[in-house]
Amino acid sequence: MGLSTKAVKKSPWVFHVNTGACNNCDIEIVDLLTPRFDVERFGIKLVGSPRHADALLVTGGVTAQAAPRLREVYRQTPKPCVVFAIGACACGKGIFTTGYHMVGPVDKIIREIDPDAIIAYVPGCPPKPEAIISGVVKALAAI
């Protein structure tokens, strides 16, 4: 395990990217920071810039307008980084699969610019906060 991988796994700082989600996964992510789940005690911190982040928490099925911004955010994130596709939409466009404005899902957009990206999936509509924590733990154990 290289130094940079170790740095990602210890106290991962995360950046939250909404690409056209319904707000549900997003409030559950914010919920993680508040007293009941309080992931900051594990050193997981929501940061204000992708340049500070070890992981991206991506929600939503990626709309046509959000796709270029998602790519840009991914480019700005220092590598290695883990992309978490959170929720049914991020994993596979969910109920919006047939929408004319949807170009996702998240893995398709990210793989267009980086075929080797590390992508973890947390399904659910919305996934419960416990599920998100479990997903993060499993993904970090796997890399």
Binding site: T19, G20, T63, Q65, A66, F96, T98, G99, Y100
Partner: peptide, 14 residues
Amino acid sequence: ISYNHRGMEKIAET
């Protein structure tokens, strides 16, 4: 605005 436009009104017709 447009970033969160998912085209639901069209999906609802299906």
